[in-house]
Structures are given as C-alpha cells and as structure tokens.
Nucleic acid binder design. Structure first.
Lengths: 196, 196
DNA sequence: TGAGAAAGAGCACGACCGTTCACTTTGGTC
DNA sequence: GACCAAAGTGAACGGTCGTGCTCTTTCTCA
C-alpha cells in the first residue's frame, strides 16, 4: 500500500503544476501520466475519474497552502507581526513556492467561480474560512478591537492587494509588483493601528 | 458585405458570452456556431482559425470596455468625480453589463498570464495602458500633483479593489461585495486628496 | 516463500475537437 | 435580370479526449 501512496502524491504534485499553468479543467490525463512516467490507464488505479483527481489536486493544494502560509504565522503571537508574516508568506507562496504557474487557488477561483460543482464548493468553503481568519486577525490588531465592519474592510483590502500583486507580476511583468503590494499593505496596517 | 459583418458581430457577442463563463480557450466552435444558428464550417468564413476568433473576441471586448467605462468618464473634468465614475462604471461593467460570466478581461488575464502568444500580448498591452491611465488620473487629483510613486500606489490599490470585489461577489457570493469595494475606494480617494 | 491484493500496461471505444474542401444558396451590383 | 462574389452547408479528416476492459507485473504480509 505504501508504493501506491507515493505515486499518488507524485501525480498530485505534477497535476497541480500543470493545472497552475494551463488551468485545472484543461489539464489532460495523458500529459500528467507521461510526466509522471505512468500509462494513462494507470492513473485510474489512483482516481476514479478526472474530476476526482481535480478535487484531490485542489484539496492537497489547500493543505499545502495552510502549511506554507498559515502554519508559520500561527506560531507567532496575534498582532501586527503575525499579519505581516501572513502577507509575506502569501506573496512568497505565489512568487516562490509556485513560481512556474502562480497560485493555483487563485487561478482555480477565477476559472470556476461561475461553474457549479464540487470543485467550486471546495474553493468557496476554503475562501470563506480564510476570509474569516483574516477578519479575526485584524480584529485582534488593536485594543479595543476593531468593529466587525472595520475588520472586514481591512481584510478585503489585504486580499485585494494579493490579487493585484499577482496581476502586476504575472501579466504586466512589473518588477516592482512585490514592493508595491508590500507598501500598500504596510500602509493598511499603519492606518488600522492608528485607528484610521 | 453588410450581411457578413452582422453575423460576424453576432458570433463575437456569443463567443464572448461563452468565454466569460467557460474560459476563452475552452470555448468550442461547435457550441458557438450552434448558439448563433450557423454550421461549424460557416464560422471559418469569418475567422481563419479558432485563435483568430479568440483574438477578435478579445479585441472587441476591449473596445466595449473602453466605451462602457472610459468614454463616459472622459467627458467629465479630471478630478475626484471622474475617478469615482471610472470605478463605478468598472464595477458595473462586471456586475451588470457582463452579469452572466463576469469581466472577460479579468478572466482571460488569469487564464493567459502564463501562456505566451498574441492573446497574452494584447491583454498585456491594454492592461499596461489602462494602468498608466489610472496613474495619470490620480496625479491630477490634487494640486500640487502626486508624485509618480504615490500615484502608482494609488492606482495599484484601485485596481486591486476591483479584483477583490469580483472574487467576493462571484465566488464568495457576498451580497455586500459592492459596498465593501466602494467603501475601500472612497477611503482611498479621501486619503489621497488629504495627501495621506 | 507463496498467495493474494495492489499497481500498472496495452488496447480499444465513442465522443468531440479544429480544420479542410467541394458544393449550394444568397445578396448586391452593373 | 444576369453575374459573381460573399455567405453558408455537409461530410469527412486526423487527432485528442476521458474511460472501460483484460492482462501482466510488482509489492506486501502471513
């Protein structure tokens, strides 16, 4: 049983790589199998269908995201430096950890946001939870804590800056994309701590 | 010759609709032809290849964007109300004018940002020009004008809020998405006019 | 070490893909 | 109203897609 788990992991890694570049629904079983060194039918010993594989790719990517971005930050005390760590790791997640195709979660979001199904459901659930996490972080940034509405506004801006950074970096090929996003985010933190 | 232009326009409209929902590269010639009431081979009297059609779809969408968002704003005097109009029309462009599949330009950006070719080139050129336009608008928001760096930071935030609005509205199905984005944008305008 | 399950290969299938080509119908112009 | 180009049809192509099937190889555990 151990061998199977290892190749399953290799399949997921390779499929995630290809999905980040070409799109989750465009990935071909043939290409994944070839890159992993398997026959196409061999894939079906690990996943019942293409959609099942896409779902597994998405879920394992969400876990990797949590480990890479949230886990290190969660070990810091709540507050400004924790939020800074989250944002820095978030940027690094798309710039470094997924350098080739960018953040798959974001790409899949834009690809699936109008296509009902289990893939979209998983994304929606995770993104809602992530948003709630960010709102809580902003609330505990100040004493007395920010109002729900203020924290939501701040979390919205933080997430927006991540999205903006991605477009500037990947399409516009702007070398200053990271600096721009960091400046906007630090500004947001300053304003929030000052209480607007 | 006039009949041909009319059906060409119908093809572009339908293809843009489907591309916004399913993705520009996933659109099938068969589905487009059927929806327009044409045979698949009939499409080839209007476009040499699928890629040529995609390019035409993208270009006509960029023109419609300029007419819908920029044209009305450009008739106002430069300044705060013009920037507000741009943002409002920009949001309406994705919420109202393209209610079904959302903003095709944004979807195509995320789909093509790592796939070299003429489609990506067209998008890159337009987005760079659009960014420059926004930077200029922010510069003329205040007297003395903002520095280049300050204006770039402001334009980055404005664009980011648009992207954030789209994700909140389309994936998270947040009914307050529009209000959140407008609040963040008005805040940005206030800060910028005040001179930070 | 041998039995049995897990992992994987090879092939064929029906469906759909973009594209071509020979043909017919339609529309505008002298 | 005739002519000719433009517009559109239908069938067929080579290719790729996801999937099911039978068969062989490889691992794992008693």
């Amino acid at each position: 049983m151990r061998k199977g788990e290892a190749t399953r992991a290799r399949i997921l890694d390779e499929a995630a790589r290809q999905a980040a570049v070409r799109g989750l629904s465009v990935v071909s079983l043939n290409d994944v199998a070839e890159a992993v060194g398997l026959s196409k039918s061999g894939l079906f010993k690990h996943f019942d269908s293409k959609e099942a594989m896409q779902l597994a790719v998405l879920q394992s990517t969400l876990e990797r995201f949590a480990e890479y971005v949230w886990l290190p930050a969660s070990q810091l005390p709540a507050g400004r430096s924790r939020l800074e760590t989250i944002f820095e790791r978030w940027i690094a997640w798309s710039e470094v950890e997924n350098a080739e195709g960018g953040c798959l979660i974001m790409a899949a979001t834009s690809e699936l946001d109008d296509q009902p199904g289990p893939l979209r459901d998983v994304l929606q659930t995770q993104q809602r939870r992530w948003t709630r996490t960010l709102v809580k972080e902003f609330q505990s940034l100040r004493e007395p804590p920010l109002s729900e509405a203020q924290a939501q506004l701040a979390a919205f801006q933080m997430k927006s800056f991540f999205l903006g950074h991605n477009e500037n970096r990947r399409l516009l090929e702007d070398a200053d994309a990271r600096a721009l996003a960091m400046a906007a985010f630090r500004d947001l933190l300053d304003r929030t701590v000052r209480g607007d």
